[in-house]
Amino acid sequence: MDKFAYFWSLIIVGGTVFLMGAYRNVFLKLCFIRWINRKIREEGGAKVERLENTPIPEPATIVREAVFQKRIRNRSVFLWLRHCLIFFGFTAIFALDCIYTVFGHYFHHYFDYTYFTSGAGRAFLKAGMELSGAVLLVGLTAALVHRVVYAERERTLVNLNLVLLLWVVTLTGFLTEACRLIGEPDDPFVDCSFVAGPLASALRGIDAPWHALATPIWILHATVTVAFFAYLPFSRFVHIIAAPIGRSITQDGNYGRLKRERVTEGLL
């Protein structure tokens, strides 16, 4: 059972668990919401048809709410900074990772497309992932420290398991990259990985059997990452999927106001 077999079975199982969670906590709920809204319209007897069930959200609110997170900024700049680091770090590394796996590992089986595997794209991809990885790691460390030290004062909720999980994922990610670099000192893009590179040179000092360790660390990274994705819909991280849908449709309470107006107009 070599590395790749384990990797692919891991992905299949993780993916399915993710989809099962998404089914129960997202798909079911969205179907129900669509159904109840239609029921309200038919039997609610609301004489007013003005309000559609899924209004098109205006981009301004989305930017203010999702990108700038004005609500957390009002609470405290530290929490806002921490959330931004994690938010942008995670989305960036997730996107770049998808691009890398799709273009890097997958496309070259069909057509020789080396831009990302060895061309200039590889450098951008490498630097991008290093940067977003670093940002994510910093954000997560801040979150860990904050959760442990300040939780009571800030009235936030202490559940370390999720943050710890993602933190381990990011850490092992850098370790795998460092081990790979130790294995291939003459990698043309070593100067792009400004985090893993110095880490690799540092580790090279310690005379551990790095070459032997490369694969187990790679497997550990893969396992933890897939575990994170599989557990995501069952945990508080479901807000990564649900919040964009819910918050953009309800437009910071505006949708509630429209619904109350609809009920009031029914009383006219």
């Binding site: 070599d2 790749f4 077999a5 990797f7 692919w8 079975s9 992905i11 299949i12 993916g15 997958y106 089986h109």
Partner: peptide, 9 residues
Amino acid sequence: LVYAATLYV
């Protein structure tokens, strides 16, 4: 996914 795995395994 299984089909994709055939490329590697």
